[in-house]
């Protein structure tokens, strides 16, 4: 299903799916690990329970955004009943496109002065 699919057709992502992709972008994680990471990276604003998490993972597996990992990070320290998930190349591409889409939205909000202007390395979004 994932092969040959236009990544842009999967946009926009829901906040939960985007946060799960971000949580998996640096390393493989199991279900509870993803829940904790999503909670941490959103400052507790998004706190997915097992139902929401596995519902999203089910759709993401079908879309080819993530896959179950064959390797275990540290088998001796870990419960072997846990399944680990990792992001696929398509998932990484889609999350980058979603991040760009959100960046464009923030840029538009700055142009409309809904957000304060920011000057950072190489980027100047000041208006007026």
């Amino acid at each position: 299903m994932a092969k040959g699919k236009d990544p842009r057709s999967l946009l926009p992502l829901t906040p939960a799916v985007f946060q799960i992709l971000l949580a998996l972008s640096d390393r493989e994680r199991h279900g509870y690990g993803i829940m904790q990471e999503v909670k941490n990276q959103t400052g507790g604003r998004l706190n997915p329970g097992p139902g929401t998490l596995y519902g999203c993972l089910n759709r993401m597996l079908e879309a080819g955004l993530v896959k179950e990992s064959d390797e275990r990070p540290d088998p001796e320290l870990d419960d072997e009943r846990r399944k680990y998930y990792r992001v696929t190349n398509l998932g990484r591409h889609v999350s980058r496109l979603e991040a760009e889409r959100l960046e464009e939205a923030v840029h538009a909000a700055r142009l409309k002065k809904l957000l304060p202007a920011v000057q950072s390395a190489g980027l100047d979004w000041r208006v007026g």
Partner: peptide, 17 residues
């Protein structure tokens, strides 16, 4: 089908939480 696939993992995640 959903339950058959994710039941164990969901209980595990619930228990950890």
């Amino acid at each position: 089908e959903f339950r058959a696939r994710y039941k164990k993992e969901m209980i595990r995640a619930f228990k950890d939480d």
